Simulated scan of single mutants.
Amino acid sequence: MVQYRKPLFPWRPATQDALEKALKTYVTDPAFPCVGAKSALAKGTLDVIGCRDVTSAWDDVRIHDELLRFAQAYRDDPGLFRSLAMVFEGPEDLSEKAFETALWERVQSLSDKDVWRGQSYDDRVSSNPDSPHFSLSFGGEAFFVVGLHPHASRPARRFDRPTMVFNLHDQFERLREMGKYEGMREKIMTRDEALAGSRNPMLARHGEASEARQYSGRSVEDGWRCPFSYSGDDA
């Protein structure tokens, strides 16, 4: 388990601007494969929140506040291609396994806060991380998480700061209904293959395998068990 540490850096008002600029520059790189993130940035619907330390619970209440706000904003105006990114100042030296541990510790803490605040789990998905229908839920909306960090083995997940990008599950379902999901998925995978030299073995469609295996970006081994456990009523 990653030990709790005091924040690496004193918080500075300029930090938000610097982290937001860094992520948006990363997404605009022509080689970056995720066309959904590029669309969100172009539409001004990529929200970026600067945070301190991904191995610390310091910002968890604030992050959960943002997730609740984001979920409600989507219900009020359900437009496509919206993402909420939490960009942490550090640590910048985490291995893939250490980042994976930190990511799931943040996820567990955020989910526990969702339960504590009386939020219901999105009944369109499962809270069981072993289920092929698993997704996280915050504020009653299902989310898929994409982890980025400096030492990711996949180039598309390699970013200067530890980052957790929260994407709404409902957007993927709407793309399926519009007949656009498969084409977009193939485009992303083709671009990722061009960047990395191979296709990401962790990618699977919702309903085929648990998406939990994809969150950290590490190629997890056979027999890997997700450390997440929902603390509310079964969903």
Rank of each mutant, 00 (worst) to 15 (best):
Q3A: 14
Y4A: 11
Y4T: 07
P7R: 03
P7C: 06
R12L: 15
P13G: 10
D17M: 13
A22K: 12
L23A: 10
T25K: 15
Y26F: 15
V27R: 09
V27G: 08
D29Y: 02
D29W: 01
P30C: 09
P33T: 01
C34R: 10
V35M: 12
V35E: 13
V35K: 14
V35R: 13
K43L: 09
I49M: 11
G50R: 04
D53K: 00
T55E: 07
A57S: 15
W58R: 11
H64Y: 08
D65I: 02
D65W: 02
L68R: 07
A71W: 10
Y74C: 10
D76E: 15
D77E: 11
G79N: 09
L80V: 07
F88C: 05
G90P: 04
G90H: 01
G90T: 04
G90S: 09
K97H: 11
A98E: 15
A98M: 11
E100M: 11
A102E: 01
A102V: 03
W104K: 04
E105A: 10
E105F: 00
V107M: 07
S109I: 02
L110W: 08
K113N: 08
K113G: 13
D114I: 06
R117T: 03
Q119G: 04
Q119E: 12
S120D: 07
Y121R: 12
R124K: 05
R124Y: 06
S126N: 09
D130V: 02
S135K: 03
L136T: 05
F138D: 01
G139E: 01
G140H: 01
A142Y: 01
F143I: 02
F144C: 07
V146A: 04
G147A: 03
L148A: 06
H149L: 06
P150V: 10
H151M: 14
S153T: 12
A156F: 02
R157P: 03
M164I: 10
H169A: 09
L175D: 10
M184A: 04
E186N: 12
R191Q: 05
R191C: 08
A194G: 11
P201T: 07
A204N: 11
R205S: 11
E208N: 13
D222V: 12
D222Y: 10
G223R: 03
W224F: 13
C226M: 02
P227A: 14
P227N: 03
G232H: 04
D233G: 13
D233L: 06
